[in-house]
Amino acid sequence: MIIDLEKFLADERPAWAELELSLKKLEEEPNLQLSLEQARRFHYLYQRASADLARLMTFAHEPAMRLYLESLVARAYGEIHETRYKKEPWRPWVWISRTFPQTFRRYQREFLLSLVVTLAGSAFGGLAALLDATAKEALMPFQHLQGNPSERVAREEREQKQRDPLQGAKTSFSSELMTHNTKVSIFTMALGMTWGVGTIMMLFYNGVILGVVGLDYVQAGEAKFLLGWLLPHGSVEIPAILLAGQAGFVLAGALIGWGQRTALQARLRRVAADVVTLISGVALMLVWAGIVEAFLSQYHEPILPYLLKIAFGTVELTALFLFLAMAGRTEKENLRT
């Protein structure tokens, strides 16, 4: 009826100690690879501890001993049953040139949705500003954009002749932009957990601001200034926000699971690495955008000709498009297209 605890302890204690030692080693060195012999021994020790736990639970009521064995088995279980594909060590160049663009292309539908929502927001913002003169004041969060565009352009061009407005503050301004935009992007991605509703709201609002600003400057005849000001950094920053939205929709898609027969846990598990890849790519893009915005975008004619800035932005946008569309294309992708 009741297990002979004394004998049981005497027999099994060395095996538990050995298992505990192996676990400690594995836990201290996450990348440790066991040899075949070591793996076999580890598996044997795990099975033995599991069997001991089963015996103890069946034949004897000893909570402390059970807790001890449960802890051993639980730790070993995590090591033994981890079957998810173990990738090669992370290599930055491979990640940038292959993994990131491939991941982007895998979720084109989500990116399109991100783009459509932003465009819808822009259309709404533009229309609102066109139909209601007070809409600009209500929708625009940035104080410096509330005034008359032509007055701003004239003022900035005049001031820049006299002194550098960002003198002694360019680097810090650049890092402020990087951190702020990265936070907004992470938030946009995280809002995917609201079944995508929060992500849609963020993207739509971004679109609204773009629409209002765009229409305001075009109506004032300052389209060239607007392009020269926005394109150098916006050609990377705006796609980055769209990609953050894409990551949010990937998360939302896994959460909702339309047309998928797998369980929620499995769906979220499948997209986890891709979401991290997308948001890491976004962070990288925003570092570049932050540098360009602080060091280039804020300088206008006569310091920097608008056409040069527009050309720079266009080259960036084309390069980004080609990179995301073509880099690291696989045979499978080529066959599909």
Binding site: A74, Y77, G78, E79, H81, E82, R84, K183, I186, F187, M189, A190, L191, M193, Q265, A272, A273, V275, V276, I279
Partner: peptide, 22 residues
Amino acid sequence: MDVQGLRLHPSQIVIRNLLRFL
């Protein structure tokens, strides 16, 4: 820990920490 008692993957750690914002 992983919800199934398995080893934590880096992507799991990153996601749970980024979602702190929310």
